[in-house]
Design a protein around this nucleic acid. Structure first.
Lengths: 334, 334
DNA sequence: TTGAAAGCGGTACCAC
DNA sequence: GTGGTACCGCTTTCAA
């Protein structure tokens, strides 16, 4: 079936010439090229990817490894990456590496070593040391989204900046009783720790260090709901909440409504993300655009693939404050 | 670096023997096998996937094509597929084929033809005729999740059954003013049409044909919210709503709360899915388990790959009614 | 500008 | 049981 040999024969040229004409590498006279191209089209010729890879050492495929695909941020990033790759005629192989699963182990131990890709994008992976080692061992460029700047390229928002803006926004409105909701527990992500620190720093700088309060919560919408339900059930509750992300913040808003606590008059809520639900909940938040981070990562990766020796770049975006109706000055009638 | 030739040399055998020892195909004496295996381990040998593919014609890779990855159902299915493939040492190449985009066109026109996979799983694709043609043209087994039974294997729930159960549940509680929320508009998915028909049939059978009411809505949580906000703002509103899926149903619940309409006393809501938010919203729903559909699809696909001539199988699951607190008899005080 | 031929890294048939 | 060898389908020197 339709190998390049058939195309060559039909065009009356050699395999070599056919290859040159089709790939665009090397000289071919315009007329010959035309003949080859027509022959290929007539035969419905499509090059075998494995043969091409074997011969060139390039897979025209990018690996994407992430711990979740069902959370807003990750799904958006994935879409951004996919769209970018699609434009460039590149494939995408997905690795779902949930923390603490044997699947993740297999991915790092076996899958990566197979080098089915020219480069790897790791999203919010929080890799352990031996995992980082594996990633470097494969000798392919790596770009991380949400990771620490270091030896590899990195894309992400400035978390410290974002959470400070969030906290300062509340402080600026007059709040002093501001809780930070989200994170904590066993496998607590670095992002979430960073955000907590930023919150604490902002509180301290405003002389509110002793009012700072961290409420643990799973970093999901139901998680935020559950944690907030506990927190707000108490009569001695904060007047404002910073959610570690919008999902948690929205969970808190829903919990507040259930408890009959009015947002924003009785409780102000800020998030970080600008999640697809943020507008519907009128959530004040710090906007990040994961799709753009995805395509930025692709750009960086392709640069690294083209020039492996370039020093690692660090793209650190500033999140923009989007004020909606979930924040207001504290109710002073109390 | 590290080809099978090196392994063979180190083990003191031929490439052929090394290959047999490593792949498990063909006879090799236990001792020889041991030698080869150790040599391979010592060298950190990993077979080149492109070379294997070229030689065997098998890619050990499965393509997954879906229109969204950021919606609950799709993300869950994807995770289910991924987990199944991971267990079997198979890779997953993702194609994000959003309706009406050039990206989708490229996927069907170019990407599929490259046959980077041994089989394809299409999720909720609603393919046009020429797209179906393309899928068959690649001459690889295809399994569809949420599709019409026909020439290919199919996995999915019995939508008619599910929506009837939902509607009958409400009718059984005494409701007669039951609206169906979701679907309609330009590129209206078949699933949603099927569900609407089921609802209409159930209404008709209960003698409520003239009370049937379809309210258009984008099939997302914010979409359901917006549509319900309109619908429920009217004083002459239904006493119950069937959401085309949980996302829409939950959007409706949120809208109701905003409007001060109490669920379930003033409004009953049923969904279909058992979405991750369903419990938190106490939503009565018909449970489907997308992850299981994903792994079922993988099973079917592998069977087809092993025995291409098997007749297409149709897995049609029954959704289970999960009664929570979003449904109750209509308020009769009115 | 084009063609012949040597790989790329495995697998699998066939003879020993 | 094991080894020699002809492919798999394409790219890429190197000569002509």
């Amino acid at each position: 079936m339709g190998g390049i040999a058939d195309v060559a024969k039909r065009a009356g040229v050699s395999k070599a010439t056919a290859s040159r004409a089709l790939t665009g590498a090397g000289y071919v006279s315009p007329t010959t090229r035309q003949k080859v191209v027509s022959a290929a089209r007539e035969l419905g010729y499509v090059a075998s990817t494995s043969a091409v890879s074997l011969a060139t050492g390039r897979t025209r495929n990018v690996g994407v490894i992430m711990p979740y695909v069902n959370r807003w941020f990750f799904a958006e990033v994935l879409e951004g990456i996919q769209r970018s790759l699609l434009e460039r005629d590149l494939d995408l192989t997905l690795y779902d590496a949930k923390p603490g699963t044997v699947g993740r182990q297999r991915i790092f131990d076996d899958y990566l070593a197979r080098k089915r890709f020219d480069g790897l994008i790791a999203v919010g992976l929080e890799p352990a040391d031996h995992e980082i080692e594996r990633m470097h061992a494969i000798d392919r460029p790596v770009v991380m989204i949400v990771g620490d700047e270091g030896t590899t390229c990195t894309v992400g928002i400035d978390d410290d900046h974002a959470v400070r803006r969030a906290t300062e926004h509340l402080i600026g409105l007059g709040h002093t009783d501001i809780a930070f909701l989200g994170g904590g527990g066993a496998d607590w992500a670095m992002v979430d720790r960073r955000r907590l620190s930023g919150y604490e720093a902002a509180m301290a700088e405003a002389g509110l260090a002793d009012r700072a309060q961290h409420v643990q919560s799973e970093v999901t919408l139901p998680g935020g709901y559950a944690a907030a339900a506990d927190l707000l059930g108490d009569t001695r509750r904060p007047t404002a909440v910073v959610g570690v992300c919008d999902e948690v913040a929205i969970g808190a808003m829903i919990a507040a409504r259930r408890l009959g606590i009015r947002v924003p008059s009785e409780l102000s809520v800020v998030g970080i993300d600008d999640h697809e639900f943020a507008e519907m909940f009128s959530l004040t938040t710090l906007e990040q655009i994961p799709r753009e981070q995805g395509s930025a990562a692709v750009d960086l990766l392709l640069q690294q693939i083209a020039q492996p020796d370039r020093p690692p770049v660090d793209v650190r975006l500033k999140a923009r404050l989007v004020v909606r109706a979930s924040t207001a000055p504290p109710d002073t009638r109390a």
